[in-house]
Every structure is written in C-alpha cells, then in structure tokens.
Simulated scan of single mutants.
Amino acid sequence: MLSDDKDVEQFKALYIQALDGGGISCVLLSGTANSTEALKKAVEALQPLTQQRDIAFLIEDDYQTAKALGCDGVHLNDAASYKEAREYLGADYIVGVDCGISRHDAILVGEAGADYVAFNNRRPLPEIEDPDVREFEEGGPKGLELLTWWQTMMTPPCVSMDDIPIEAVKSHADAGADFIAVQAAIWNHSDNSTAAITEVNEAIA
C-alpha cells in the first residue's frame, strides 16, 4: 500500500527502473482498494511515467475511478462485474477479468468481449449451485494445463496471474500464456527491478 507522499516517492525510483527494463505491455496498480486518496496519489505519480512509454495503465475493479483518472482501463476480480464495467467504459477502454481457475467464468467474459482473461491458481473455485457447471469446473484442467486449454479453445488473450518466480516464467509462456503478470519477483529482486524485467524478457524470448 502506497499510503503517503513519501511512500510514493520512494517507490517511483524502483518503478522507473522496472519500466526501463522494457518489454512491458501493461501495468496493473493494486493494493490501494481501501483508500481512495492513496489510489489517487499512486495513479497521479505512476500513470504518466507509464503512459508516456506507451504502456497501458490499469487499476483494480473501480472502473468509474479508472475513467475519471485517465487510466487505460480496469482489471476486474469478479466476472459478474464485466457487463456493467464494459457498458460504463465503452469499447475504447481495456476491461480484463481475473477468473481464478473458473473456465466457466472465463468462457462467459471471453465471449462477451473481455480484452483478456486472467487465470489465477491462487484463487479457489467459488461455491457453484448448478450441478452441470460444478462438474465442468471441478473436472477441468488446473495449473499450466489451464493455460493450454484456453489457447486451444478460445481466442481472447490469456494472462497468467500466479505471481510466479522468474525461473517459472518460461514454463507459463510455453503452456500458452499470452502475458505473464509478475510482482514479487520484480520488486524483491536481489539486484534491481531493471535486472528483474530483463531476466523475464530473456526467459520468454
């Protein structure tokens, strides 16, 4: 959480290093959901640095604030929010959805026009009342096989949201991830965030 001006300024240097590593398609700002003021400060500090490099800048869930602050779109953590977010933002904004390991949700939002579907093996399946849907979900692929299944069956890009270490990046790309979301591996790298991004790019080259 970037809670004050000092936190934001301290993070900016690390953030710029990461951007300088190149090969970044999109940045998702997370961890500010409980504070509107913290979110605004972080967006004002980081968004211009991102967009001037032609990198998309997204925030989580709050599509109204995303539009108001000039973000490129929103990353939803609930597939049920997709229709409302798309209607509000229109076709010119990015609307992506983290579907956890739910193939059912991924198919629904993918067919509805989501710009990307994210799979996140850290999230369990929700309670499912429909027995046919439950059987479909519980009998489906997990882990890397979920990425491969999506590439075989569907068209929209898929993102691996598992926050994996750099040494696992290649396996996720080989399995079918169009994009790979990395977080801890970047900010906690033993050298610096530029080196971390460089290593990620080399792993998937």
Rank of each mutant, 00 (worst) to 15 (best):
A184Q: 14
Q47Y: 05
G23N: 12
V159L: 14
T155Q: 14
E135P: 00
C26T: 14
L49I: 05
N192H: 12
P141M: 12
A114N: 12
D178P: 04
G143D: 01
C99R: 03
E60K: 13
G176P: 08
D54A: 11
W187F: 15
G90Y: 06
I107K: 03
A79R: 04
W149P: 01
N188C: 04
C71T: 08
A33D: 15
G21Y: 03
S30W: 00
A91R: 12
P157L: 03
A185K: 08
H189L: 10
E137V: 03
L146R: 14
V109S: 07
E87K: 14
W149K: 08
C99P: 07
A80C: 02
D7L: 05
S35C: 07
V117K: 03
I59F: 10
A175V: 12
G21R: 02
P126V: 05
E135W: 07
E145T: 00
P141F: 06
L108N: 07
A173E: 08
Q17C: 02
L39Q: 13
R86Y: 03
Y63V: 02
E202P: 00
Y88M: 00
A177F: 11
S35L: 05
G143P: 01
G113F: 05
P48M: 09
G143W: 00
A38L: 02
Q47H: 06
E135R: 15
E127Y: 13
M1I: 08
A68Q: 14
G140A: 13
A80S: 07
A56E: 03
D7S: 15
T65V: 13
I164S: 03
I197H: 07
N120H: 15
G96R: 06
K41L: 15
D115Y: 05
G113A: 08
Y88W: 01
K83R: 11
A114K: 10
E60M: 10
V117D: 04
L46N: 09
N120P: 11
A56R: 08
L89H: 02
P124H: 10
G113V: 06
S35Y: 04
A80Y: 02
A106T: 06
T194G: 00
D92Q: 11
A185T: 10
Y63N: 01
Q10H: 11
D20T: 10
K67I: 06
T155G: 00
